[in-house]
Each structure stands twice: as C-alpha cells, then as structure tokens.
C-alpha cells in the first residue's frame, strides 16, 4: 500500500476516535455539572477537560474565564481548536476523501454524511436542551463508521491501518482521562476518597462505557483501585489500555514486513508489561507517574509508525 494512503487511513480513524472520546468526556462532565450537590467545584471539572487535551493555555487566550458554555463551545464547535469535535470530524472526512478509492464507498459515505450533518449542526447551533443529544449523535456516528469499516472493508492492510489508528488513539485517551480524574479525586497516593466521590467514579466509568462492566466484573462497591485496574489492566474491557495495546500488538505483527522490527519491539514490550503487570505495583509507584510513562511510550510508538510506514526513506 502507498505510504501516503496508509497515513490517511490511520489519521482518518484516529480523528474519528478522538471526536468520540471528546464527546464522551464532555458528556460526562456536562451531566455531572447538572448534579449540583455532587461536585463542590464544577469549575475544576471543566478545567480538567482542558488539561486532558493539553489545551488550557489556548482556551484562556481565547475565552478567559472557565465556564461550562465556553468550554463546551471550545471543545465541540470551535474550528480554531484543532482537536474540537468539529475539527476532528473535518480531519476524518478530509483524510477519508484523500483515500476514498481505498475505503469502501459505504465507509466514505458514512464519514462524509457525518461531516455534512456536523456542518448543519454548526449552523443551527446546539440548543441548551440538546447537548447530550449532540454527544450521543457523535458517539453513534463513531460506532457506525467503525461498524461499517468492520462490515465492509477487506481484511487487508488498509483495514489494519484503520484499526491501528483507532486503538492507539483510544489507548492514549483512556490513559489521559484516568490520569486527570484520578489526580483531581486523589491528589496524593494516600488519599482514600469519600462517599461523595461515588458520583465521580461512576461518571469516569460511564465516560468510557465501563459502568455496567464494572458491576459485572467486581459485583462490589466502586473503589478507586478497582477502577484503575479495570481501565488499565483488564483484558476484556474494550477501552482498557491493555486491550488497546493488545490490538495494536496484533496489528503490528500482521503488518510485519522486514522493516518494522523496532516498532514490533516497542509495542511488544509495552504489551508484555500490561499483560503481566499488577495494579498494586502500579499504584505503589504512583498511578500518575505510571500513566505519564504510558503516554510517552504511546507517543514514541506513534513516532515509530510514522517512520516505518508513512515517511520511509527511499532505500
């Protein structure tokens, strides 16, 4: 496959996955902000969204003070923000457009129709009572496009680069959201958290569609340690870091070729650590430090994917 085609496929999937994750985060925060008694400082919640995406300074420059409406606008509809939902959907669509000959026409039409509807929504604006409906729509479109890819694409390298983009982005996102929420709720490793935090933990779980799964897996009260365990190490959780890296590991092996040894090595090593890691060790060394390390390695893997497949040297 052409290097540039692989590049577009990968970013098409990453961007769409990013739009979905952003919608998930915003949705949970928005719902929480409606429960006044649940959060002492709703403000901190909105600030957290910005720091997850590393956008706090951009935001302050453009909007000044933090308030719910502005953060929502900035993260959902602001085209100047390169990772807002609208920008992500645009990027997904432009990347898809560049490879519309490689993806199935069903997949192209799904992504293109999403963008056209997004344009409409932008023009109409999101009504105050339609915020959650909008996020549901983004999630639905993301589910749909993943499903269409799954149901129509040939199981070849094109499909693999799409999956690679999806799972790398998802791993990155799960690590970020867990890191920030954990930090807000339990600033120091010794903190245990109180009953009021129940809402917070359940919101975090819901944001990654893990609330019901938590109940099934643990059949017990929600504790921070178990939440971390579920989202980092659980092999059956579709959004846990381990599951995502497991998928990336398999894809990298399937994409083999003789030039990707360094990539195989980095991904394999990370997967082995997740596969055999224990949550007690992780929390013992400090979850924040651990997750920062994971994010760095995901970044290095993305860099290696670039070098191996997208911008190879000519010999």
């Amino acid at each position: 496959m052409l290097s540039s085609t692989a590049d577009h496929l990968y970013w098409m999937a990453r961007s769409f996955e990013r739009a979905e994750n952003t919608a998930r985060m915003l949705d949970v925060t928005y719902r929480m902000s409606l429960l006044k008694q649940a959060t002492a400082e709703p403000f901190q919640e909105w600030a957290a969204i910005l720091s997850i995406s590393g956008l706090a300074s951009d935001y302050f420059e453009r909007y000044g003070l933090i308030d719910a409406d502005n953060v929502l606008r900035f993260m959902a509809l602001d085209e100047a923000n390169s990772v807002s939902i609208i920008s992500s959907l645009y990027s997904a669509r432009e990347n898809a457009r560049a490879v519309r000959g490689t993806i199935t026409s069903e997949l192209w039409e799904t992504i293109n129709a999403t963008w056209l509807q997004m344009r409409e929504i932008e023009i109409q604006g999101i009504p105050p009572d339609g915020v959650s409906t909008f996020f549901d729509w983004v999630k639905e479109r993301s589910h749909l496009s993943r499903g269409v890819a799954h149901g129509t694409m040939l199981r070849g390298d094109a499909f693999r680069f799409i999956r690679l983009g999806t799972f790398l982005e998802r791993a990155d996102n799960t690590a970020r959201i867990l890191d920030v929420k954990y930090h807000i709720l339990l600033p120091s490793p010794k903190d245990v958290g109180g009953a009021a935090d129940y809402y917070q933990w359940s919101a975090l779980l819901r944001s990654v569609s893990a609330f019901e799964s938590y109940r099934k897996v643990f059949r017990d009260v929600i504790t921070p340690l178990r939440v971390a365990d579920l989202l980092v190490l659980n092999p059956d959780m579709p959004r846990s870091i381990r599951t995502c890296i497991h998928e990336v590991n398999r894809l990298v092996l399937d994409l083999a070729g003789d030039k990707n040894w360094e990539l195989q090595r980095q991904v394999g090593l990370l997967y082995a650590e997740l596969r055999y890691g224990s949550i007690d060790d992780i929390v013992g060394q400090g979850l924040h430090e651990y997750l920062t390390g994971i994010l760095k390695r995901i970044g290095a893997i993305a860099e290696e994917i670039n070098k191996t497949y997208f911008w190879p040297t000519d010999d």
Binding site: M1, S4, A6, D157, T308, D314
Partner: peptide, 20 residues
C-alpha cells in the same frame, strides 16, 4: 491513486513509496 510525492525516480525508473 498517487500524488507526485508518492513517487520517486532512481536509475531512470519510477517507484512508488509503499508501506512495504
């Protein structure tokens, strides 16, 4: 479907850059 920068010429022969 290629663009100019997908291709390069070496020894009077045209190649495309692929993932392999």
């Amino acid at each position: 479907l290629v663009e100019g920068n997908d291709l390069f010429v070496r020894d009077y022969t045209v190649y495309m850059r692929t993932t392999q």
